[in-house]
């Protein structure tokens, strides 16, 4: 989860419940209520309203497009968590997909391929097919 702050941006109210942010401030006409507070007295008004967003909290969630809901079969951590070698998840610890469609943390599968017992050819830890990285 990441949090972003947007300061001094301007919010545009297009329809109730839908908001877009633009660089310009937005002006809109106020329409006074249909039920005047003072019966018998009704003055026309053309004042315009400007909304300036001072602060906005945005919550984001990221997920690898490959890999699905699963965990890495080698380190047993979620794909979106760091592998056993890394401190932080994300771009530093991406997934690698084999031609067999099995995905692992890059560091986890690299270590398996590099193991002396897996020379010259390593197999997929899940299906034992010869491991080959899938074309992107």
């Amino acid at each position: 989860m990441e949090q972003m702050q947007v300061d001094e941006s301007v919010m545009k109210v297009e329809e109730p419940g839908h908001v877009t942010i633009s660089n310009d401030s937005y002006e809109m006409e106020t329409t006074t209520g249909t039920q005047p507070p003072h019966p018998g007295v009704h003055l026309e008004s053309k004042t315009r309203l400007q909304i300036v967003v001072k602060k906005l909290h945005v919550c984001g969630e990221w997920k690898w497009l490959q890999g699905g809901e699963d965990t890495c079969g080698i380190c047993r951590m979620e794909f979106e968590s760091a592998c056993n070698i890394c401190k932080f998840p994300g771009d530093d610890c991406p997934l690698v997909l084999g031609t067999c469609r099995h995905a692992f943390h890059r560091h986890c599968i690299e270590k398996w391929i590099a193991a002396p017992t897996n020379q010259p050819k390593a197999q997929c830890p899940l299906c034992r097919q010869d491991w080959q990285v899938a074309e992107p």
């Binding site: 380190c75 047993r76 951590m77 592998c83 056993n84 070698i85």
Partner: peptide
């Protein structure tokens, strides 16, 4: 180490 972290997960499971 990575292997110890993995063993902790094995134990938890």
């Amino acid at each position: 180490t990575p292997s110890r972290r993995r063993l902790m997960r094995d134990f938890k499971k």
